[in-house]
């Protein structure tokens, strides 16, 4: 996997990237040719530190037409960390019941984008967010938005596993308990309306889905922090599934997994797309190609460069940079 080896690139070249998005760098330049066959002249093409070529993005590259409803629609989203402009004017429609892959080099803002969708960026003090994100037509950045309800509907699996220092069982049933869907407290046991059985079922189903059941079924009461990194990651996936969200955001869910577990997770994601809307960040191109219906490519500087059917992106991208990135020339 060449894109993994080349991941040594460092600082995003902000200055150039900013230059590239300047509106008066006009779409009339020769570099904006769409056909990959008609490559621009090498003389007009500059190369960034990361090995990216310089080109101007076009609005139609991120225009993705699809049938059916859109679950999430993002308009002109800008994120700043202090003075750093981490996401630049991203607009994107995410269709319902499908898998959307987000790819791009490290530090280009994929996690940032994902965190905007369930407003986890609110937790970061330095972060400032402009623009709007609509879930089923309702703006989640509305002043009256109910964050708890939002996060219940939009679940998230973090880039690095973060299980609670509780038993495996309690980790899984944490969400439903907090939502009041499962009640196994002392009082409910006393008055005989404990959901112990429902809990057991939920725990088993979620763990099976996350391909973890076989490994932990005998030790559900052990502390989750005693699991291996990959097991913890699957636990976090299971924990998210147990809350039964409508949208599932996954930030590199398979980064710490062996090939077998990875393929199980990939199968799971494909299955999930029957009912849920899945947005998944990955550094693995093959994975994105295998599992996703549409792919969005972010490039250094925090811009969304191209967004389209996965096939189109991988076989015939409009952007030269995207093609370079996918073929492993940088990133």
């Amino acid at each position: 996997m060449s894109e993994h080896q080349t991941e040594t690139e460092t600082e995003p070249d902000r200055e150039r990237a900013a230059e590239a998005t300047e509106p008066d760098a006009a779409p009339s330049t020769a570099t904006a040719t769409t056909e990959s066959a008609s490559r621009p002249e090498p003389s007009t093409e500059r190369t960034t530190v990361a090995g990216e070529t310089d080109e101007t993005t076009r609005p139609e590259w991120v225009q993705y037409d699809f049938d059916g409803e859109s679950k999430l629609s993002v308009h002109d989203l800008d994120v700043y960390y202090g003075d750093e402009h981490a996401l630049k004017g991203v607009s994107m429609e995410i269709p319902e019941e499908s898998v959307t892959a987000l790819i791009g080099p490290s530090g280009c803002g994929k996690s940032t984008y994902l965190r905007c969708l369930n407003r986890m960026n609110d937790r970061i003090k330095a972060a400032r967010i402009d623009g709007s994100v609509e879930l089923d037509g309702q703006n989640v950045y509305d002043d009256n938005a109910n964050l708890v309800e939002l996060r219940k509907r939009v679940g998230m699996v973090f880039q690095s596993p973060n299980p609670f220092p509780k038993s495996i069982r309690d980790n899984i049933s944490y969400g439903p308990r907090k939502h009041g869907d499962i009640n196994t407290g002392l009082l409910s046991r006393l008055v005989g309306r404990s959901d112990k059985e429902a809990e057991e079922k939920l725990v088993e189903r979620s763990l099976r889905d996350a391909a973890l059941w076989d490994e932990v079924s005998g030790r559900l009461d052990d502390n989750a922090l005693g699991l291996s990194g990959g097991q913890q990651q699957r636990l976090c996936i299971a924990r998210c599934l147990a809350t039964d969200p409508e949208v599932i955001l996954m930030d590199e869910p398979a980064s710490a997994l062996d090939p077998i577990a990875t393929s199980k997770i990939e199968d799971l994601i494909t299955d999930l797309a029957e009912e849920y809307t899945v947005v998944v960040v990955t550094h693995n191109m093959q994975q994105a190609a295998r599992i996703s219906d549409q792919t969005a490519v972010f490039l250094t500087g925090g811009e969304l460069v191209e967004y389209d059917d996965t096939e189109k992106i991988f076989e015939n991208p409009e952007s030269q940079r995207v093609e370079d990135y996918i073929s492993g020339k940088f990133g």
């Binding site: 309702q138 989640v140 109910n146 939002l150 219940k152 509907r153 939502h179 939920l202 889905d209 039964d244």
Partner: peptide, 16 residues
């Protein structure tokens, strides 16, 4: 696999 009987409340609430 879904258990959509879960309690739901409004995503964006009405005013006071």
């Amino acid at each position: 696999m879904s258990n959509r009987n879960a309690t739901r409340s409004e995503l964006v609430e009405s005013d006071t």
